[in-house]
Amino acid sequence: MKKKRFILWFVFLLTMSMFLVACGSKENGGEKKGGEGTKTEEKPKFISILTGGTGGTYYPLGGSFAKIIKDATGIEANAETSGASAENMTTLKNGDGEIAFTQTDIASYANDGKLMFKDNKVDNIKAIATLYPETIQLVTTKKSGIKSVEDLKGKKVSIGAPGSGTAANAEQILEVHGMTLNDIKKQDLSFDESTQGIQDGTIDAAFVTAGTPTGAVEGLSATEDVVIVPIEQDKIDALIKKYSYYVKDEVPAGTYGLKDKVTTVAVQAMLVVRSDLSQKVVYDITKAIFENLDQVTHAKGKLIKVENALNGVGIDVHPGAQKYFDEKGVKAP
């Protein structure tokens, strides 16, 4: 009887051991599969591209990029409307998007925790590339007599909406000319309000940061002899040396009826990405965009060139994007 019980007990233990080993194998297999799944999940199924308003440039460009990314990588992508540069940085910080359009200066302020990001530093963004210039235009008229930045002393000058990137541009340009906002009669007006004020004679000049030609300035040129105040080369050099997100630019002859081109500076429209996206994913996205620019229908698409992708970038480039630019021999100036 004892022998029979012993045999039964032995069979029971053997059965349980086999059962536990089988379960362990499944769990180990599950862990291995889960590990592989984690690697696979480095490629997201969907990404949001944060742009700007529907009437701006970022939104249609974002739509083109979304289609290119989907076709080339298989990742579902969608262009999302937003309040543009500064809002996009905050949205990425909160994890509510993956890629965003912004200006190079705004990205730098966000990354460094300066100006409008003083209490809201964004520490999870990297650059993909710069795209095209957003030109800083110091707009006035022939009858104002203003021919240089120094001539702004004592004048009523709009520096853009409060807290805007344009306001920061204005302050930095004044700075390299040995001036401050205290040297002008500062006005905080939108671009449309600024050009209307110039036309009405209530202000003398305005800083406008936008791609050229800018609609509000074109409207002013229909009734006034528009002057774009130049920035001299030594001041351009000083500005770029202190603030790496600036690049030299010009307003072409013929724009706003100008007889000659005007030298100035620009910040750049750029693409940034959340830094936690994998190197492979960002590499694939960067490659997809720059090797399919012929599919971008917006006029600004003609200005986007891989050889200029690191000009004035201002913040660290994502390793995935950097890998692509290394392959192409593209270096920062």
Rank of each mutant, 00 (worst) to 15 (best):
R5T: 13
F6C: 14
I7M: 12
M16A: 12
S17W: 13
V21C: 07
S25M: 12
S25L: 12
N28F: 10
G29L: 09
K32L: 09
K33T: 10
G35Y: 15
K39L: 10
E41N: 15
K43V: 14
P44G: 13
K45W: 15
G52L: 11
T54R: 14
G55Y: 15
Y58T: 14
Y58K: 13
G62S: 15
F65I: 14
K67D: 14
I69H: 14
K70D: 14
D71V: 04
A72P: 15
T73I: 12
G74W: 07
T81F: 04
T90F: 13
G97Q: 12
A100I: 10
Q103Y: 10
Q103K: 10
I106C: 07
A110I: 09
D112K: 13
K114A: 09
D119G: 07
N120L: 09
V122E: 05
N124T: 05
I128Q: 02
T130R: 03
V139E: 02
I146K: 01
S148K: 04
K153D: 07
K155L: 04
K156P: 09
I159G: 03
I159C: 05
G163H: 05
S164D: 11
G165W: 08
A167K: 05
E171W: 07
E171D: 12
Q172D: 09
I173T: 04
I173G: 04
V176I: 03
H177I: 05
G178P: 06
T180Y: 05
L181M: 09
N182K: 08
N182E: 08
D183T: 08
I184A: 02
K185W: 12
Q187A: 04
S190P: 07
S194E: 02
F207P: 01
G211K: 03
P213L: 03
T214L: 06
A216P: 04
E218M: 01
G219M: 05
L220N: 00
S221H: 02
A222H: 06
T223D: 05
T223R: 05
V227G: 05
I228T: 08
K235E: 03
A238I: 06
L239I: 08
L239E: 11
K241W: 11
Y243G: 08
Y243I: 09
S244P: 06
Y245D: 08
Y246N: 08
K248H: 08
D249I: 10
A253G: 12
G254M: 06
T264E: 09
V265N: 08
V267W: 05
L271I: 08
L271T: 07
R274I: 10
K280I: 06
V281K: 06
K287H: 11
A288I: 08
E291P: 07
V296A: 10
H298T: 01
A299G: 10
K302Y: 09
V306Q: 02
A309Q: 02
N311S: 06
N311D: 05
G312C: 03
G314N: 01
D316G: 02
P319H: 00
A321R: 02
Q322Y: 00
Y324W: 00
F325N: 00
K331Q: 03
